[in-house]
Structures are given as structure tokens and as C-alpha cells.
Design a protein around this nucleic acid. Structure first.
Length: 453
RNA sequence: GGUGGGUUGGCCGAGCGGUUAGGUAGCGGACUGCAAAUCCGCUUACAGCGGUUCAACUCCGCUACCCACCUCCA
């Protein structure tokens, strides 16, 4: 039984499919105006763990992740660069997928782009107009009438009669009936340049929230199981998605909402606007691997703020080495009873609202016992755990380097020296090999080599 | 002002009303020609002040500090 925390009810609840054996999941994806930073990837890594745990429990998954390729920032970027919007966003779409691969994040089933779904969005806006919950203002934009949707605020648990007003609500928003009303369709402006689509309300472009409502319902149905994103999307983005969808269909939009806490840097939220961010590329250039970064991102509970630090990446490297050394000894066959017990602890942990720190603890208990009692028969358990973690059998990045001939020669010489118990020569050769970047280990079975770092 | 979350050992990071989290670092021991790896043990952590309780890091109250959201944001 898989339990998760639902932001809507603020309780931990069992997650089970509304229909059949498949969980339908919508995950808010990137706005492709720049390279995503590792704070963004914390959310995608969390969603990856979520979909893996769903599958771990024998359920099927259908995940949709949108690509926001039209909004203020993408338009500004494209026009500033003097290129077409689609050309501008393509660079960052490609980079995004490359980064996901580096982090061993499983691909979603569908990646709809906003610009490919303008007709669906127009149809949804039209439906809201027909129902009288939307209106066109004098500036030509279409807004959602928040007062007409009784459930508004149910996700964020905000009481709108008791709010401070005017703080961040721009003074030029007087064309809206209510400050809380949000744009469904934005009328074309000079600064939009060539970007725009014709609609029943004139030339313009979709509002920020409408794409998610339109595309999620297109691919997952009017009511589906799960919707996730960063905690900063809870309000207003997700609240508005609910309003748009439920006002249009009259049905429950999403059963369970999950939100991931932020990655912090020196105690503060990592964000583009604050400028305190690292992209995946930044870290790879510093010599850290996608595998190590993944380990750090998933090794804290997703609802807890995680403070990013380079020391954590160093710790990750050593912890992964420890796992690797143990797994290298593991073999197929029937798992010992103690290994099965650790697997059960692991399963209990991931099913308890994705408690990955506890899951890792179970993994390390397995490592300790396998090192002490023998790793025979434990390979299957490691593989089973890695269906969720995706960090052990990370083939695209494990360093399996061929031994250079030079090192091999030194190793052979050392074997000779050791045969005649010439320890001084043995140690000298070991130092020489070390200088070439390899660590020699001696055991009953002879020498073995490990690449340093 | 409203709402939510947090403050755990050198660092990172779980957790529960009473029993070892885990990683990483450090110390001691075993093993080893010496190392490395591994195993064993240790260093008796829970912001402060009250309260409830046989028992509180865990529940309640207050105080301090921190973070996030309140229409850009994973």
C-alpha cells in the first residue's frame, strides 16, 4: 500500500488508481527560456521517484509533462535574440532532455508543448466564457472571474476575505473586475512582436495557467489521479488550474496534489531571479557526475527544504563508491533472509510518502550485511531497490576505464616483487601506480586496481 | 497581516512518547608485510523556557531565530 501526502487535504492518503491499474500523473514542466537549474531538477527528480515508486508497487503510470514554450520570458528572449520563438525555445527543450538523461530521470509518456495546443486552450476559454465565469476586458484580454468559482482557494487554503491587498498587485490592472482575476487569454501587445494567434477575442496568446488545464485534460481526462510541482506552484498556478478545469467541466479535476519543497543555497531558495543558482552544466563542468547530483537531490525528503552544498556532492561520491564496491561482489541466486528483511524495510520506507532517506538507510544496512556476511544472492535485492533509486546501476556514467598498458606493466612488476617479498619495491611500485591515478589493493586473491576519483 | 514549514551530533539528513536511523568525517580495535577496502566499538545530538506524563527529541503553550507562498518562479 502506497501512501502519499495530499496538499489538498493536508493528510497522508493511500494512492490507488481511479481507474484500472494505471495512475495518471500530470507534472508541471519547464519554461524553456533558459537552462534549468538544479533546483528545478529537484522537482523533476522527485517526480521521477514518484513514478518509479508507483511502478515498484505494480501499478502502471501515464505521466504528462508540459513544456511551456510561450510566455513573457520566452517571448522576451526570442525577440531580444531576433529569432523565431520556436527556434529560441528549441535550444532549451533539447538541453532539458539531455539533462534529464544525465540525471537518469525516466521519460514521461507525453511531453506536450503549449504552442502545439493553442486550439485546445481557445476551446477551453470559450467554454468558460459560455458558462459566464470569464469575461473580456477593455484591453482585449480575457480573465477568469474568481468570484464565480466557489471553491477558489481550496488548494492553497487561502481565505480571500482576509488578505492584505495591493501589495504586489500592479496598479495597471484596473481593467480586471477583481484583483484576483487571472488572465486566460492575453491580448497582443507591441512587445509580443511576431508572436500571436488569432482567437475569438482577437490576436493574442494564452495566459500562464490555461495550458496545464487544457493539456492535462486532453491527455489524462477531465478527472485524473495525481498532479505535482514545486511548492511555489501551489498558488496561484495550481489553484487556477483547478478553477479553470472544474468551472468548465463541473467535475473534480485532480484527486491528489503533491508538492516538492525548494532547494536552497545558503539557506535561501535557489532561483533564477535571485541569481543564486547552479545549472546541471555548471556542476558537470566542476567534475561532479549526474549520478552524484541525483544522489544528493533524492537523498532528502521531498517535502523538506534541502540546502545545496558541495560537501554533499563529495559525501555522495564516497557513499556511491561504497555501494559500488559491495554490488561488485553481489551475485544472483536466492536472497538471504536478512537481505529480504532490508528490502521490506526499503519498501515500507518508499511507500511511506516517499521516505527516501529511510530507504537509503535500508540500502546501507544491506551493504553492511553483505560486506560482513557475504554478498551471495543479494544482487536481485540491489536491482529491486534500484528500480526506485536509479542510482546504483547507472550505466551511462559509471567509470569503467580500461587499464593503460603502462599501469599494467607496473602491476606485473609489482606481482613479481611481491612473490619474492620485496616489500620496498612493492611499495615503490604502488606509489608509482598511484601517481598515474590508480589505487592498488592487495587481497588473498592478489592485486586489484581501482581508478581514483 | 494571513498561511504553511523548519531549528537534530563536525557536516548532511531520518525518526518516534520508553528500544542503534543512515551517509560522511573523527577516534580506537580486528584484518594486512605496510596500505587500501571491509568489519567491530566509541565520541552519550535533538534552539530556549515552561507544562502534560511513570517516561518527551517526539504532545501542549510561550519565546527566539530561519525559510517559503499571498498573482514571475520547480
Amino acid at each position: 500500500m502506497m501512501n502519499v501526502y495530499n496538499s489538498l487535504t493536508r493528510r497522508v492518503e493511500e494512492l490507488k488508481p481511479l481507474e484500472g491499474n494505471e495512475i495518471r500523473l500530470y507534472t508541471c514542466g519547464p519554461t524553456v527560456y533558459n537552462f534549468a537549474h538544479i533546483g528545478n531538477f529537484r522537482a523533476y527528480a522527485f517526480e521521477d521517484i514518484l513514478r518509479r515508486v508507483i511502478q515498484f508497487n505494480g501499478m502502471k503510470i501515464r505521466q504528462v509533462m508540459n513544456l511551456t514554450d510561450v510566455d513573457d520570458k520566452t517571448i522576451r528572449g526570442a525577440n531580444a535574440a531576433g529569432v523565431a520563438l520556436t527556434d529560441y525555445t528549441k535550444t532549451y527543450k533539447d538541453a532539458f532532455f539531455a539533462d534529464l538523461k544525465k540525471l537518469n530521470i525516466q521519460p514521461a509518456e507525453v511531453y506536450p508543448a503549449a504552442t502545439d495546443h493553442i486550439p485546445e486552450m481557445i476551446a477551453l476559454v470559450q467554454k468558460l466564457m459560455d458558462k459566464g465565469v470569464a469575461y473580456q476586458s477593455e484591453d482585449g484580454s480575457v480573465y477568469f472571474k474568481v468570484r464565480e468559482f466557489p471553491g477558489y482557494g481550496k488548494l492553497a487554503h487561502i481565505d480571500f476575505d482576509n488578505q492584505r491587498t495591493g501589495l504586489r498587485c500592479a496598479a495597471d490592472e484596473y481593467d480586471k473586475e477583481n484583483v484576483g482575476d487571472f488572465a486566460l487569454w492575453k491580448a497582443w501587445e507591441e512587445s509580443d512582436g511576431p508572436v500571436g494567434w488569432d482567437s475569438p477575442w482577437g490576436r493574442g496568446r494564452p495566459g500562464w495557467h490555461i495550458e496545464c488545464s487544457a493539456m492535462s485534460m486532453k491527455y489524462l481526462g477531465e478527472t485524473f489521479d495525481l498532479h505535482t510541482g514545486g511548492i511555489d506552484n501551489l498558488f496561484p498556478h495550481h489553484e487556477n488550474e483547478i478553477a479553470q478545469a472544474e468551472a468548465a467541466t463541473g467535475k473534480e479535476f485532480v484527486r491528489t496534489w503533491m508538492h516538492c519543497a525548494h532547494l536552497r543555497v545558503n539557506g535561501e531558495k535557489m532561483s533564477k531571479s535571485a541569481g543564486n543558482f547552479f545549472t546541471l552544466r555548471d556542476l558537470l563542468e566542476k567534475g561532479y557526475t549526474g549520478r552524484e547530483i541525483r544522489y544528493v537531490l533524492i537523498n532528502a525528503h521531498y517535502r523538506t527544504g534541502l540546502n545545496f552544498a558541495f560537501t554533499a556532492l563529495e559525501d555522495a561520491r564516497k557513499a556511491l563508491d561504497k555501494i559500488d564496491r559491495c554490488v561488485a561482489q553481489a551475485t544472483d541466486g536466492e536472497a538471504p533472509e536478512w537481505a529480504t528483511k532490508h528490502l521490506q524495510d526499503f519498501a515500507d520506507a518508499v511507500n511511506d510518502d516517499l521516505n527516501l532517506p529511510r530507504a537509503f538507510a535500508a540500502l546501507f544496512e544491506l551493504v553492511r550485511d553483505a560486506n560482513g556476511k557475504g554478498a551471495a544472492g543479494t544482487l536481485g535485492v540491489f536491482k529491486r531497490m534500484d528500480e526506485v533509486l536509479g542510482v546504483i546501476f547507472f550505466e551511462n556514467e559509471k567509470k569503467e576505464e580500461a587499464i593503460p598498458a603502462e599501469v599494467k606493466a607496473l602491476l606485473d612488476a609489482r606481482a613479481e616483487a611481491r612473490k619474492s617479498k620485496n616489500w620496498a619495491e612493492s611499495d615503490r611500485l604502488r606509489d608509482e601506480i598511484a601517481a598515474l591515478g590508480w589505487t592498488v589493493k592487495d587481497s588473498r586473491d592478489g592485486q586489484s586496481l581501482e581508478k581514483k576519483g
